[in-house]
């Protein structure tokens, strides 16, 4: 008999031992336990991302009148600030909607490939949200820097005394610091999702390889 036939025969004849079987009394409490699936973890991370960036973006608005005034001074008038604020709220709402939709599409009764694709799509939405926030953070810092150096009435005169070379070096250092800040954030995200979805990615690639 072929080894595989032998294995199949043994596998099918084998039933779970009595000690290992669960009774209905054991199963009922299991229904009340919380899932620890990667979808649940991804869900909590995405909520944390949303809250984190909303807090980061809105805390200064509520905490300091001076900051608000500074922002308005940077953009020239309060109408621009209002438009930007409404736009960023709309973008957050759009992301919440997209996240909700992609979570809804995750179904454990789909085929393995479809399930993996739905999860990866959800991860993509979170990724775009993070990229959006990092780009906005980078632009705001760069814009703030430009304003400080060239427009801020308290600081600009000091920079005006710098030679071209000194100015270039200062700006380069500042841009590098901002880029490093954004990069560190990016690496942290890659690590979090990389570890969480490592197995899923590996299995998804394995399935995709079959279709190639």
């Amino acid at each position: 008999m072929d080894e595989l036939d032998l294995l199949k025969k043994d596998w099918q004849s084998k039933n779970t031992s009595k000690e290992q079987q669960f009774s209905s009394k054991d199963i009922y409490p299991m229904l009340l336990k919380k899932s620890s699936s990667i979808v649940k973890t991804l869900y909590y991370i995405s909520i944390a991302e949303l809250v984190f960036w909303i807090v980061i973006n809105s805390v200064p608005y509520f905490s300091s009148e001076k900051y608000r005034e500074d922002i308005e001074a940077i953009y020239g008038n309060s109408a621009t600030v209002l438009i930007i604020t409404i736009l960023s709220i709309a973008i957050v709402i759009l992301f919440v909607y997209l996240l909700y939709k992609s979570y809804k599409s995750i179904s454990v009764t789909d085929s393995a490939k479809q399930l993996m694709e739905s999860i990866l799509k959800t991860r993509k939405v979170i990724k775009y949200y993070v990229i959006y926030n990092l780009v906005v953070a980078f632009l705001s810092m760069a814009f703030g820097l430009y304003y400080t150096v060239y427009r801020n009435p308290d600081i600009a005169p000091q920079f005006a005394e710098f030679s071209d070379k000194q100015m270039l070096i200062t700006l380069l250092i500042m841009i590098l610091v901002i880029a490093a800040f954004v990069f560190v954030f990016w690496v942290i995200y890659q690590l979090i999702y990389g570890i969480l979805l490592r197995r899923l990615n590996r299995n998804y690639n394995e399935l995709k390889k079959l279709e190639a």
Partner: peptide, 17 residues
């Protein structure tokens, strides 16, 4: 139906404890 949910959980959803 159990085969599908069981395998999906094992392959995709389960985070090894």
């Amino acid at each position: 139906w159990m085969y599908r949910v069981g395998l999906n959980t094992a392959i995709t959803l389960y985070r090894k404890s």
